[in-house]
């Protein structure tokens, strides 16, 4: 039983570490601000979630477990709020995203942006 808990916790931690590193790589690699935001979204939702769930397997008592749950809920609440506010501020200060197709630019510039 102990071995199962250890192995599954380690597995969750490993997946979380991989997701965090790939989010960082995406942050460096993607071409413009709006696409980089998606890379940060990966580390904010599933990266943090996997690492915190992995830590929950190792928690010695109920209080530690509940604090990890509180941190997970806070992260899931804060992440989308911050990225929405950031995107809205960038859009209001006229930072336009690089889009792929020409027809997209026409379509969006006709509707206020």
């Amino acid at each position: 039983m102990d071995i199962i808990i250890n192995i599954s916790g380690a597995l969750f931690l490993l997946i979380g570490s991989f997701l965090c590193i790939s989010g960082g790589v995406g942050l460096l690699r993607f071409p413009d601000f709006y696409t980089r935001m998606h890379a940060v979204g990966v580390t904010d939702t599933l990266g943090a979630g996997m690492i915190l769930i992995g830590l929950m397997f190792y928690s010695p008592d109920f209080l530690t477990f509940s604090k990890l749950v509180i941190i997970l809920l806070l992260t899931l609440l804060i992440g989308p709020t911050t990225s929405h506010v950031l995107a809205k501020a960038a859009m209001h200060n006229n930072l336009m995203p690089k889009l792929q197709q020409e027809d997209n630019i026409k379509e969006t510039s006709s509707s206020n942006y």
């Binding site: 601000f33 940060v40 943090a48 950031l86």
Partner: peptide
């Protein structure tokens, strides 16, 4: 500026972890 704020925000969430 927004790239920098985004990076600082991600740095902060990683600090929590």
């Amino acid at each position: 500026l927004y790239d920098r704020i985004l990076a600082v925000n991600m740095f902060g969430t990683k600090t929590v972890l």
